[in-house]
């Protein structure tokens, strides 16, 4: 469980991007952090992923303040896929996945290879193993980036705008695919794409101007938004 408690983040230039935000991400399921562009979603994600330290409040992972955790432990429990994916262009898909298995978890090359191949197959993208990132489509790249994060078997997986490079048709395929991954981990999806959130998430928050505007079961959140 991740608990965000009264978190506020202000950038060096004075922009108050996240302003006293609290929310709880459950152990199971898909959680959506929604909001218009500029509402502070990515900033919040960077706080949860420990790339930014909030000036106020705390973020707890299973009751422990994430600031107190060791880097390697934290990274293996909370995975992130950035909006731009940041796949390594000089490595093929399999090698992209093997790197952390070898260097962070200390697996041997052959172990890492078998493990990575196994995950790719279970995610139905085994045929991409030998391709380089430049050779796969936007939707495939998104899946590969998620697969790469899942290789470390994190408890939580943060996705920033996963549909930004997808068109409508591939988006529903992708939503379907993502729902099947719930057995691996729980997802926190940051998105401004409400139809996509509706297709995937069970619960969510809607942010506006750095604050939580609506919160709860996804259908309720969306209904309340419609009323406004």
């Amino acid at each position: 469980m991740i608990e965000v408690q009264n978190v506020a983040y202000t950038y060096a230039d004075g922009t108050k991007a996240v302003n006293d935000v609290s929310m709880t991400f459950p152990e199971q399921g898909i959680f959506a952090v929604m909001g218009l562009s500029g509402s502070g979603k990515t900033t919040l994600l960077n706080c949860i992923a420990r790339f930014l330290s909030p000036q106020q409040g705390a973020i707890l992972l299973d009751g422990q303040d994430i600031q107190d955790m060791k880097e390697v432990d934290f990274r293996q429990q909370v995975g992130v896929v950035f909006q731009h994916l940041n796949l390594f262009p000089h490595l093929n898909v399999l090698e992209n996945m093997m790197l952390a298995l070898e260097r962070v978890q200390g697996r041997s090359k052959s172990e890492a290879k078998a493990e990575a191949m196994d995950i790719l197959k279970r995610l139905n993208i085994g045929e991409l193993a030998a391709n380089y990132p430049a050779q796969v489509s936007g939707g495939q790249a998104q899946r590969v980036a998620i697969a790469r994060g899942l290789a470390l078997k994190p408890k939580f997986m943060l996705l920033d705008e996963p549909t930004s490079a997808l068109d409508a048709a591939t988006t529903s395929d992708f939503a379907q695919w993502l729902r099947e991954l719930q057995e691996f981990t729980s997802f926190i999806i940051v998105t401004h794409d409400l139809p996509f959130a509706e297709q995937t998430a069970d619960q969510g928050v809607f942010m506006a101007q750095g604050q939580v505007q609506e919160q709860g079961r996804l259908t309720e959140v969306l209904q309340n938004l419609d009323r406004c």
Partner: peptide, 30 residues
């Protein structure tokens, strides 16, 4: 080299040296 590359490697838990060795340097050199 896109700074996002280093960030991506950091998100995977790689140490600073490994990030440089396996992610940033191979791209910079190419």
């Amino acid at each position: 080299v896109d700074p996002g590359q280093d960030l991506g490697a950091r998100a995977l838990g790689l140490s600073p040296l490994d990030r440089f060795r396996f992610v940033v340097w191979p791209q910079a050199f190419r």
